[in-house]
Design a protein around this nucleic acid. Structure first.
Length: 598
RNA sequence: GGCCCCGUGGUGUAGUGGCCUAACACGCCUCCCUGUCAAGGAGGAGAUCGGCAGUUCGAAUCUGCUCGGGGUCGCCA
């Protein structure tokens, strides 16, 4: 070993020990004679002193040392001079007096400084990720990720799970996201796909009698990226046999409670997790992944608003739309500029516009409102009575700003949900250290797709309808609910799960509603359906995003911050420069000809 | 595919038509310095302003196109 002690280890109790350390030159302070080097390794910093009188050779070497050189130093730990301790360093009471040192490797001047408060641009960091990860903050995030993964392994192992690896080269079953695809050399003209998730394989493992399966699985989707989406992401994939929905939820809740408690002990965590039906979540928060750290709950005021003379409201109400609203406390004095900004938020979320009613704080109460207390662009079209009713419906008080969006159900909810987030931020209602988990369950089994005029699976084709709804599958698909559940936290969807269909007849009915022709069912799912005919146990499970929970624990909104080598928004790896061209011979072997424009 | 923001020495920024022969901070190089820890002091090098085309007597600055990065909507069962 090049070192017998970690840089972050020495304390006062080590004074007098002779140790050897090795690491990177974090900073060098040259006083002409005395030279101080802060030596860094993964455990921390240690001040190393080169004294020309005690070790002239080592001192001469240190004169040439520069940032990020890799060095080794041997010497004695001693207490720092009185008053020279550094309370900001864990090792700040002591220092290493070098007797002997060696340069293990030199370094070019790094493109940016290795420090937590980096000012380097993200693309610079990504192109030099090997240096970026030297920053304690980054290394810490990778270590956090490791701890989370380790806890998953421990917890699930303790609960009877078996980790099984499933293949990365699988069959493409085009549906949902676009596949990443790999050409086959030995079967010209055919392609593998990379898994979007190990869904079918883990269900097959249930048929196989594994009973409790998990995997930290890489999943690939060739879709446009976001701050919380990479072309490849990691999910905790798990599946259990002989369980109901509550059993899966209880297991996962136990795991996530433990993850948060052990990997971020200071976090405020409420247990048991809240439980909301899908309908309730949408009604109260306008979203199926509500941030429940704050209130700002919304109400439906379609009937009240439709009685006003406002044509927008009448038109929306009569065309089957919905009018929804919530009260932003204390915002009645918002300026034109501020309300305009809110209108922009609503429009960006798809709404035609936003109607607000400011209720002056001088009003004694809602019941005693008069016209002078009301400020609204639609003031002339709404009687005071209607404003009172609306205010009551949204539980507004004098001094509040009522935000109203009219539109289709989806539009109204999306816009109001965006406004809710916006107002929570503006009103500083968000506690970054709070982890408010909520289960959202009882999702509809199907969504209606206007564009194609078809029913599509809300989650995936294997989710089981609620038993009492099975008779409705073909007659009234829209009213069929499923044993489908999401784990959300602070307004982020962390994972989805469901009880799966294990009855081939029910499965066929679902396929029929979705409108898959028989040959396509056989082509895409034949292998799984065949397995199901050999005694499939009732089973269910979840897929949970590892990147997202880790980012959340790290206090980051961008999952690239917890991924060692992430890709850019255009799915480019700036470090290795992938994707890239391949040689003509490679293309030839694969029987591929390029047809590129230009 | 749409919308929005960004691109100036190694890094981060300032400069929004002539005062720019491009400024500042950090970093880098040389020298000085025995207790610093974002060490300090003195001096120095380093950018044709993402690229191309245009407008103009004159462009980092205006226009168009393009490339790259980020955010977001669509998309992501």
């Amino acid at each position: 070993m090049y070192k017998d002690t970690d840089c972050g280890a020495p304390r006062s109790s080590d004074i007098g020990r002779e140790i050897t350390v090795a690491g990177w030159v974090h900073r060098r302070r040259d006083h002409g004679n005395l030279i101080f080097v802060d030596l860094r390794d993964r455990t921390g910093l240690l001040q190393v002193v080169f004294n020309p009188e005690l070790a002239p050779d080592a001192h001469q070497l240190a004169e040439g040392m520069r940032s990020e050189w890799v060095i080794q130093a041997r010497g004695n730990i001693r207490a720092r001079l009185p008053g020279a301790a550094n309370p900001n360093l864990a090792t700040g009471e002591v220092e290493l007096v070098v007797s002997d040192s060696q340069v293990l490797n030199r370094s070019l001047t790094p493109p940016f400084e290795v420090e937590d408060d980096t000012d380097a641009d993200e693309s610079t960091r990504m192109a030099n990720r090997f240096i970026d990860i030297r920053r304690p903050e980054m290394l810490g995030r990778l270590q956090l990720r490791h701890r989370v993964t380790h806890l998953i392994w421990d917890h699930l192992t303790e609960n009877g799970f078996t980790q099984v690896e499933t293949p990365i080269l699988i069959k493409s079953t085009p549906e949902g996201a676009r596949d990443y695809v790999v050409p086959s050399r030995v079967r010209p003209g055919t392609f593998y796909a990379l898994p979007q998730s190990p869904q079918q394989m883990k269900q097959m493992l249930m048929v196989s009698g594994v009973e409790r399966y998990f995997q930290i699985a890489r999943c690939f989707r060739d879709e446009d990226l976001r701050a919380d989406r990479q072309p490849e992401h990691t999910q905790l994939d798990l599946e259990m046999s002989f369980v109901h929905q509550e059993d899966v939820m209880a297991l996962v809740e136990g795991l996530y409670t433990r993850i948060v408690r052990e990997s971020r002990p200071s976090a405020r965590l409420e247990t048991p997790f809240a439980k909301l039906s899908y309908d309730e979540a949408v009604e109260r928060y306008g979203s199926d992944k509500p941030d429940t750290r704050y209130g700002l709950e919304m109400s439906t005021i379609t009937d009240i608003a439709a009685q006003s003379d406002a044509r927008v409201f009448q038109a929306v109400a009569s065309s089957g739309g919905t009018i929804r609203a919530f009260a932003a406390p204390g915002c009645a004095e918002y300026t034109r500029r501020q309300t305009d900004q809110l209108i922009d938020v609503a429009k960006a979320a798809g709404a035609q516009g936003l109607v607000y009613i400011a209720i002056d704080k001088s009003a004694p109460s809602i019941d005693e409102l008069d016209a002078d207390h009301i400020r609204s662009p639609l003031k002339n079209y709404m009687s005071v009575e209607i404003v009172k009713e609306i205010a009551h419906a949204v539980e507004a008080s004098p001094g509040d700003l009522v935000l109203i969006v009219a539109g289709t159900k989806t539009v109204a909810n999306n816009a109001l949900s965006a406004l809710r987030t916006e107002m929570a931020e503006r009103l500083e209602m968000i506690d970054d250290n709070e982890f408010k988990f909520a289960w959202v369950f009882d999702f509809p089994l199907f969504d209606w797709d206007d564009e194609t005029a078809t029913w599509t699976p809300a989650h995936h084709v294997f989710s089981s309808p609620k038993e009492e709804h099975i008779p409705l599958i073909e007659s009234d698909p829209g009213s069929v609910y499923a044993d489908l559940f999401d784990l959300t936290c602070n307004g982020v969807e962390l994972g989805s799960g469901s009880i799966r269909i294990h009855d081939p007849d029910v499965q066929m009915k679902v396929f029929n509603v979705i409108g898959y022709p028989d040959h396509e069912i056989e082509e895409r799912f034949g292998h799984l359906l065949k397995a199901f005919r050999y005694g499939a146990p009732p089973h269910g499970g979840m897929g949970l995003g590892l990147d997202r929970i880790t980012a959340m624990l790290a206090g980051q909104s961008n999952i690239r911050e917890v991924i060692a080598f992430p890709k850019t928004q255009s799915a480019w790896d700036p470090l290795f420069d992938a994707p890239s061209l391949i040689a003509e011979e490679q293309l030839g072997e694969l029987h591929i000809e390029l047809d590129l424009e230009e």
